[in-house]
Design a protein around this nucleic acid. Sequence first.
DNA 1: TAGATTGTTAATCGATTAACAATC
DNA 2: TAGATTGTTAATCGATTAACAATC
Lengths: 215, 215
Amino acid sequence: MNKSTKTKISNAVIKRLPRYRRYLKELQRKGVDKISSGELGVLIGYTASQIRQDLNNFGGFGQQGYGYNVNSLYNEISAILGLDKAYKIVIIGAGNLGQAIANYTSYFKAGFVVCGIFEVNPRLIGLKINDIEVMDYEKLVSYVEENQIDMGIICTYKDSAQDVADKLSFAGVKGIWNFAPVDIEVPERVALENVHLSDSLHSLAYYINKNQKKE
Amino acid sequence: MNKSTKTKISNAVIKRLPRYRRYLKELQRKGVDKISSGELGVLIGYTASQIRQDLNNFGGFGQQGYGYNVNSLYNEISAILGLDKAYKIVIIGAGNLGQAIANYTSYFKAGFVVCGIFEVNPRLIGLKINDIEVMDYEKLVSYVEENQIDMGIICTYKDSAQDVADKLSFAGVKGIWNFAPVDIEVPERVALENVHLSDSLHSLAYYINKNQKKE
DNA sequence: TAGATTGTTAATCGATTAACAATC
DNA sequence: TAGATTGTTAATCGATTAACAATC
């Protein structure tokens, strides 16, 4: 039994891992070999203590008196996040956002393979977006089952989002990335990540006004 | 001096406000007049205690023995977030994501007015996306200054993001919504909200694998 | 009035930071 | 070896939950 199965790792820690990975990638690109928690802390804006605490949830990746090896820490974090695997993906909704996410995911994210886009609008079905076929939403469940799709990305309006989530869950996806501005329900075995763009925009509005008040 | 200026309100509270507002909107749509913190808690998935604590950061919006009036609480929260005002916006980057955000923001978000999109690619300059003109990135600063733009949305690649942020800040925007996968620096007077899509996707990958391990 | 539910103080819980012994 | 820096325990801080008096 490794350490990660012993104690429940908090959400806050997990949310920081991709950020560590981004900075390590950058250091790698610059040819930096090793880094201490103190130096990384200055760079990334966390305390050295927090960085060491976070990493030690998963194992002792450092070396006393030296620090952390950039390459191997990058690889360790990638493995913890599951980014050493590949994921087969479908996108539901071929509107502007669906198309943007399709391009974004398939172009920039090695390991995330967009296999198909599903739509209800008959004018879009049959088209190819960036070499990815747009298929009839009716065929979603059978396609996901037959092709063992790992992940669904919901880019529909909010009224359809729960139906899409139900179909994806039923068909056996392991995770859902939801862009519809609504909170959806999924079985416990399905991982869910919400991107509530409107919530983000609305909190930005708050901070804009708060800043004005300061002086 | 009102209550909100007395104590610093935590980030966690602000991030929950748009969510409260979404659920109140839904109740309003259903014709519900009043709701107690207990009922709202069941709906939204927070404790009644947390809801009352959150709201009391801004004032006493409820009535003992009765609960909260849905309409007036919705309006109060909208005002707290600054959603009773209008915001003039520019988008930088007319790629897939920029176009999607342009449509999303101008269609669905009353009060957020997309005035222009800026691009370096000469093949896109002069086009209209959804009635919004695509302009030369060179003209960004003068346009923002002359038109008193409130907010900039960064939809460029990560290498340009800091330059865009610098120009926007210099030209006087009050807030930046950043979609580039990099952490940018802005003066304190500028509000910044990051949407790190890749970080979100990467943490989803973690949860997908964690769920698999459970059984 | 009696019942219900808020607003607010106090208690608990969890996450972050500090400290330091272990060790490379 | 001496200096540096980790891994880890202890202390602190902040956020959430519980409790209850105030009051509609």
